[in-house]
Amino acid sequence: MKLLYSFLKDMQLSLKSFYIYIELGFALVFVAVMLFAVPENFEPRVTVYAYLDLEGPNQVMAEESLTQEGYEVILLLSREEVEAELADNRSSVGLAVALEDGTIVYDYILQGYEDEKFKNIIKTSIESGFAKEMPGYENVTTVTTLEGKGEKLSDRLNILPVFLALNAAFMGLFIIASYIFLDKDEGTIKAFAVTPAKVWQYLLGKMGVMLVSGLMSGLVATAFIAGLKAHYLHLILLLIACNAFGSALGLFIASFFDTMTKAMGWLYMSIIILAFAAVSYYMPAFSPLVIRMLPSYPMLFAFRETLYEVSDLRYIYANVLGFSLAGVVLFLLSNWRFKKTLTV
């Protein structure tokens, strides 16, 4: 019961302060940006300014071959016009195609900053476009994916796990520490310490507040962005485990300091380091061991799993279990440390 009273008091205090509204407001702003400013999918289109010095069927074939997905082709009347447009639009590429001695000659006009990789991609994709138009063309390329799951999330939905990890799970890390230092400043922690209530009840009450605000912001964001696509039961359990882990980590770090000013640097650094996992999340090709070892790394992929139509339950619940256990261990360590340092 003392835990309940401690939690209710902390809820009452947080409802009378700004934090909980800021977190909810931030979730709503995130939702608004995602729904109204971010497209469902990012489609990077390269503008190709082309001059086709061809005639008859060659001209028709060349025009048809250039209409490929991902490219916006603008036909111009001379190579000079192509160069002028390239000067105006520095992210575009140019192409001049002419028939010389019965052979079609491709002349790529680039900006000068493109690397070999980009040059090859442009060259190959445009050539393959022409090749498809050739009589007797047959695509013999077979693509095999190592990842079994064929389902891909939309780009918008793919951003949601980052919000869930950094805001709903790890924001508590920072806030719970500030709540404790606020109590230290007010001296109310000493008043609590001379009652029969235990330190773990005090700490767990605060974690409860973090959990409520984390669940609230996480579920609001998911409900608006993913709608019925998300698996809410899995998501809620994962949010609870991850939020508890984040808060317990915040408690553990805070237990080494006596003021917020001293703890701030370490807390901030922790958030920044945890955020590095988002880089590998978006660029799987860059996922060194040091990043894969960060707890935020599996957390991001576990949150992503809850958004797939067919979720990898084993992966999700391995994370739920892992973060729950890690949270319990960190909480026990924090409790042990705070017993000695809470009122000093």
Binding site: Y5, K9, E186, G187, T188, K190
Partner: peptide, 22 residues
Amino acid sequence: FEQSNVYGKLTALENLEFYRKL
């Protein structure tokens, strides 16, 4: 305590009601 240490955001009654429950 020599220095007052009560929850500023709560009322006097809420402060006492909370502590009595502990």
